[in-house]
């Protein structure tokens, strides 16, 4: 019983992972203001202030942050939008 449930959970996780194998990554650059990056995350993605600030700080301190995951087409739309805002963004496949 337990093992069946565990197996189902594992399968579910794998299926979700297979459905969202792409990422939008925003990279740190020395130019953009922190307040601007955070405002872009909130306005474009609709993220609450706290999440937008956390992602912005992650970009700033760690050099990059995954700001969205999903299918490839959606990630390419996000990256195009980020480029429109002047942010350095790339599409990458999530590591399995």
């Amino acid at each position: 019983m337990t093992s069946t449930l565990e197996q189902q959970a594992t399968e579910l996780r794998e299926r979700i992972a297979a459905e969202v194998p792409w990422r939008t990554v925003v990279w740190d650059d020395p130019v953009n203001l922190m307040s601007y990056v955070s405002y872009v995350f909130r306005t474009y993605f609709g993220y609450p202030r706290e999440k937008a600030e956390r992602l912005m700080l992650q970009v700033h301190t760690e050099g990059r942050a995954v700001v969205a995951t999903g299918n490839r087409e959606a990630m390419e739309r996000h990256v195009e939008a980020m480029h429109g805002y002047g942010l350095q963004a790339t599409v990458s496949r999530a590591e399995s």
């Binding site: 650059d29 390419e76 990256v79 195009e80 480029h83 002047g86 350095q88 790339t90 599409v91």
Partner: peptide
């Protein structure tokens, strides 16, 4: 290069495709 960054730094053909469409 700063205004129009490379969306796929590790994949040249995907990078060209992306640039072509965007």
């Amino acid at each position: 290069g700063r205004l129009l960054p490379n969306a796929y730094p590790d994949d040249m053909s995907a990078s060209h495709e992306f640039a072509r469409y965007t």
